[in-house]
């Protein structure tokens, strides 16, 4: 398994584990109700990481997830630049810059979270900061993934990309777009009751994480390596072929 492949897997495993353990600890502590949040929306993702000890796991896990996401986007840039024509593609740089900025917002958002924010009425500024940065992270990451898929489709011929797994990216991107539209409609028309926003939040986070994993198969031959070693291998292989 190559290093980028490990990053792709970690980017989905780490948030699932962190949020799962935090949710379990918060339920055990009686801070959030037990349900299937993807369908019942009984709790926000944030609520699973407010009370200790769940907040410790949430903090460590999700800040590390943000780092994994930053490296994932770095890998995306290097990978997309390595395929097809050699001329630079500024859209990749812009997209990755926005996505990395979003991941930094996630670090900021999680850093302020904890039991010191309770009661919420006395810490409005911190809650506002957390909410704004978290929403910006989710929306920017989802939009960047959607744009990445759209541009990859548009440039499939130009870039000579043979993305066998582009179908899964398209499905996940389309679902994320639908969820964002549903979120806008729910907020605009006052339908944000009975856990609707919470359900959308859980699904958006899940789809966004799953999207990271779709590059696992794309990156089978994409690896971190000592470049001179690779060049030397190429030269010797070339030499042997010539002989």
């Amino acid at each position: 398994m190559t290093m980028p492949q490990r990053i792709a897997l970690l980017a989905v495993a780490l948030p699932f584990l962190s949020i799962g353990i935090s949710y379990g600890l918060s339920v055990a502590g009686g801070h959030v109700p037990l349900c299937i949040p993807w369908f019942e929306g009984c709790s926000t993702i944030t609520a699973t990481g407010v009370y200790y000890p769940a907040a410790y796991v949430f903090r460590a896990g999700l800040i590390s997830t943000a780092v994994i996401a930053i490296i994932w986007w770095y890998c995306v840039r290097a990978w997309l630049e390595s395929v097809g024509e050699p001329h630079p593609h500024p859209w990749i740089h812009r997209l990755v810059a926005f996505a990395i900025a979003a991941s930094i917002l996630l670090v900021a958002s999680i850093s302020v979270l904890g039991e010191h924010m309770v009661p919420s009425s006395e810490h409005r500024w911190l809650w506002r900061f957390h909410t704004i940065t978290a929403v910006l992270f989710f929306l920017t990451t989802a939009v960047c993934q959607i744009l990445m898929t759209v541009r990859m489709r548009q440039l499939q011929q130009t870039l000579n990309i043979r993305f066998r797994r582009i179908t899964s990216k398209q499905i996940l991107a389309a679902l994320q777009l639908l969820l964002i539209l549903a979120l806008v409609v729910a907020v605009s028309f006052g339908l944000d009751k009975d856990g609707v926003i919470e359900v959308i939040e859980w699904w958006l986070a899940t789809l966004s994480s799953l999207y990271f994993a779709t590059t696992y198969y794309d990156w089978q031959d994409f690896r971190l390596t000592r470049h001179e070693q690779r060049l030397a291998q190429n030269v010797s292989a070339h030499g042997e072929a010539n002989v």
Binding site: S82, R162, Q220, F222, R223, L224, T225, R226, H227
Partner: peptide, 11 residues
């Protein structure tokens, strides 16, 4: 300087 992410797939 030479520890890079390299795509070894041929296009």
């Amino acid at each position: 300087k030479k520890i890079r992410l390299v795509n070894q797939q041929q296009y």
